[in-house]
Design a protein around this nucleic acid. Structure first.
Length: 637
RNA sequence: GCCAUCGUAGCUCAGUCGGUAGAGCAACUGAUUCGUAAUCAGUAGGUCGGGGGUUCGAUUCCUCUCGAUGGCACCA
């Protein structure tokens, strides 16, 4: 048979030569470092015989496929270690994931954090034992019977549910055998030592909270120690830019037990908040929106009409009144905005109406879901609802995407931003034609706005396809910020209409849209993205005027007054401290600019400008520096 | 909501095998006027998350509860 290598070379081998033997035929050292092979694009064990022509890549540590195999093996070796240490523990699934692996176990008693080092040590023992890893093909019923007989009922269930066409393979290493598709390393020694168990967590069998509670152990594994160290270092760095930590350090906000998931905004944090709103107000005004405001607390009957009482009751804060009825805090602004639309009769000529509301909404979140600013129970959305005719729909969606992109660009997030395009779910309302049109419009938009997007088929809301704008936080979690939803439900349900050119009554389209999404979450994302070093226009304190001696105080005060009158956020630091003390303190507080003034500056009418992140300073004429700062401190146009 | 861990001064953390607690930084006071990432000295600060129980005595042990953290589930 003919084997083609990545460099184009073709060699002839007898049928049923293994990948490892082929590697050996090239060089002894290559054979030694072989972890697996990729045959015709499919990763395989190196010990598997090859019986047809094809292309072959030898997977060594540097190969792109290596890490996944290493991590998957680490999961198996961890399972073996756990079963040796804790007999009776059942294995379920243990895949490779980004940066590592996990394995879900079923065991009556809980693992404790103290168990992790023990398990890790046993893994190292298994690696040292160098157990040979072999692949076995089993007959389905026998495999099921086998796993049931050894008490591995979860594994038996997995096999039961595999499609009949699937080949059932077991991988055996030492006394441990696991159902697995493979491929795996030739032996446990090949895993090396660049791995570490990281955390203990709970999970559910098959991700279903009504099924068995499992215990998950996470680990990380790499091809080399250097890679592992670099990864651990990166985790440490990420922790430093955690918005919860920055919020404390920069004195932006805090939480208290009495108000779970609600933010106490300190003056500096509130400045960021208000600056973002001022910026958005300017953008949406230019884009032809009107701004409105609607009640935060409405009678339950209102939410019954909107459908929220049926579909969203669990997440609503409900306030029983003294009388027979009750109120609920608004979880969304849309029904309120619809009341404003309905307050007047509309002609086709009035449309589109772009109605924006910086509405504070309240949503009850499961206790385990709350997370700093990223997931709170009371937050402000930069919400808007566009009421338009069908012939206006696509242009409106494109316009809001353009706006979305401008905003994310101004905020420096355009690069890391990803779009998820969610299409019709199985459970839905509305005609297929409506869905076709709405999805086509969004699809078209994805192709034109120049952002990275992925299809999230079947994940749309039951009433609408949507585009979700997603960013990743410092610890690698994804958060949805902006969203665009083409609603085909509420306008009908709540009886919206306009009078068309021919005098007939028509139902308008309604598009829900948020650009920043939750202001709270967005500020969390911004803080992490910039590691607290916000752009000048967003920084709560834009410049500190720090005096070197008391003699310069009135000079500094004059400069500060000039800056303040131009709207620059300036703080005076005339304390009786050394300049290096002041520089350190304001640098740690991430103030973008420090202007130091002493005798020299006062005499020359200059300022010594120090920019955050730079090691030194530059002396500039005070007039130029003031003019430049007044300009640079403004909101983006 | 589920599993695990945690809750001691503003922050980071130590401590008590049960006898009501300590450090560094921050704060405050005084001195120092000092040219670019920490000047010196002193002072003050805690119902050891909250309720209940065991005990002569609980911050420490038990229990309930609230909150946080990491996952999972949820996310109209």
């Amino acid at each position: 048979m003919k084997i083609t290598f990545p460099d184009g070379a073709v060699r002839e081998y007898p049928v049923n030569t293994t990948g490892l033997e082929i590697a050996e035929s090239i060089s002894k050292s290559l054979a030694k470092s072989t972890l697996a092979v990729v045959f015709n694009g499919e990763p395989r064990d190196s010990a598997r015989a090859i019986d047809t022509d094809g292309t072959l890549e030898i997977v060594t540590k540097d190969h792109p496929a290596a890490l996944e195999i290493i991590r998957h093996d680490a999961a198996h070796i961890m399972a073996e270690a756990v079963q040796e240490l804790f007999p009776g523990t059942q294995v379920t699934i243990g895949p490779a994931i980004e940066n590592g692996f996990y394995y879900d176990f079923y065991r009556e008693t809980a693992f404790t954090p103290d168990d992790l080092p023990k398990i890790e040590q046993r893994m190292r023992d298994i690696v040292a034992r160098n157990e040979v890893i072999t692949r076995e093909v089993w007959e389905r019923d026998k495999a099921i019977a086998h796993f049931n007989s050894i008490g591995e009922t979860f594994k038996a269930e997995i096999i039961q549910d595999l499609p009949g066409t699937e080949t059932i393979t077991l991988y055996r290493q030492g006394k441990f055998a696991d159902l697995c598709r493979g491929p795996h390393l030739p032996s446990t020694h090949k895993l090396g030592t660049a791995f570490k168990l990281t955390k203990l967590a709970g999970s559910y069998w098959r991700g279903d909270h009504t099924k068995a509670q499992l215990q998950r152990i996470y680990g990380t594994a790499w091809a080399t120690q250097e890679q592992l160290d670099a990864y651990l270092k990166q985790l440490e760095e990420a922790e430093k830019r955690d918005h919860r930590k920055l919020g404390r350090e920069m004195d932006l906000f805090h939480f208290q037990d009495e108000a779970p998931g609600s933010v106490f905004w300190h003056p500096k944090g509130w400045t960021i908040y208000q600056t973002l709103i001022a910026y958005m107000r300017r953008k949406i005004t230019a884009a032809g929106y009107v701004e409105v405001n609607t009640p935060q607390m409405l009678d339950a009957t209102f939410w019954q009409k909107s459908g929220h009482w049926d579909k969203y009751r669990e997440n609503m804060f409900v306030i029983p009144d003294d009388h027979s009825h009750c109120y609920a805090m608004k979880p969304m602004s849309c029904p309120g905005n619809i009341q404003l639309y309905k307050a007047h009769q509309h002609s086709y000529r009035d449309l589109p109406i772009r109605m924006a509301e910086f509405g504070q909404v309240f949503r009850r979140e499961a206790s385990g879901a709350r997370h700093g600013l990223m997931r709170v129970q009371a937050f402000t959305q930069d919400d808007a609802h566009i009421f338009c005719r069908h012939d206006q729909l696509e242009a409106e969606v494109i316009a809001m995407c353009t706006l979305m992109k401008e905003v994310y660009t101004d905020l420096g997030l355009a690069d890391s931003l990803r779009v998820k395009f969610s299409t019709r779910p199985e459970q839905r309302i509305g005609s297929d034609e409506d869905w076709d049109r709405a999805e086509a419009a969004l699809q078209n938009v994805c192709n034109t706005i120049g952002l990275n997007w992925t299809l999230n088929a079947g994940d749309g809301a039951f009433y609408a396809p949507k585009l979700d704008f997603v960013v990743t936080d410092a610890i690698g979690r994804d958060w949805q910020c902006g969203t665009i939803q083409v609603d085909m439900n509420l306008p009908h349900r709540l009886g919206l209409s306009y009078v068309a050119e021919d005098g007939s009554k028509q139902v308008p389209h309604m598009v829900h849209r948020a650009i920043l999404g939750s202001l709270e979450r967005f500020i969390g994302v911004l803080l992490e993205h910039y590691a607290g070093n916000l752009p000048l226009w967003l920084a709560p304190v834009q410049v500190v005027l720090a005096t070197i001696t008391d003699e310069a105080v009135s000079y500094a005060e004059n400069l500060a007054a000039e800056l303040r009158s131009a709207g620059v956020r300036v703080v005076m630091d005339v304390r009786n401290e050394k300049i290096s003390y002041k520089v350190r303190e304001h640098s740690v507080a991430k103030v973008p600019l420090i202007w130091a003034v002493g005798k020299n500056e006062m005499a020359d009418k200059t300022v010594a400008v120090r920019r955050l992140g730079s090691q030194g300073q530059e002396t500039e004429s005070a007039a130029t520096a003031v003019a430049a700062l007044c300009e640079a401190a403004q909101l983006p146009a």
